[in-house]
């Protein structure tokens, strides 16, 4: 049971959180102008790196706020957490 440091609540058990997939993928400004390929890339395709990965998390059973985290997908270590309105921080492993 990992501890996830919610930027609003502090460290809480992972069971309180929902995973929200890759972060920093904004809803397109003008979806109707995208090709089928471009739209499919937005809807269905995500990165799957081994190592640091910027993700969305939701503190569903806590403050119910969405936030972002950089997590090492190989070790599950959370390298940084940050609010929606903050840029992705530089992380040093």
């Amino acid at each position: 049971m990992q501890l996830i440091p919610c930027p609003y609540c502090g460290p809480r058990e992972e069971a309180e959180f929902h995973y929200g997939g890759q972060a920093h993928i904004a809803y397109p400004q003008t979806p109707q102008e995208l090709s089928d390929f471009e739209w499919a890339q937005y809807v269905f395709f995500r990165d799957n790196p081994k190592g640091p990965f910027a993700e969305r998390w939701h503190h569903a059973a806590g403050c119910r706020r969405w936030f972002r985290a950089v997590r090492d997908t190989a070790t599950h270590e959370l390298l940084a957490v940050y609010r929606q309105d903050q840029p992705r921080p530089e992380v040093v492993r």
Partner: peptide, 13 residues
């Protein structure tokens, strides 16, 4: 409710 909250917080704050 979660679906609506998600958009409100992440896309259209």
């Amino acid at each position: 409710l979660e679906w609506m909250e998600e958009f409100l917080q992440t896309e259209w704050p």
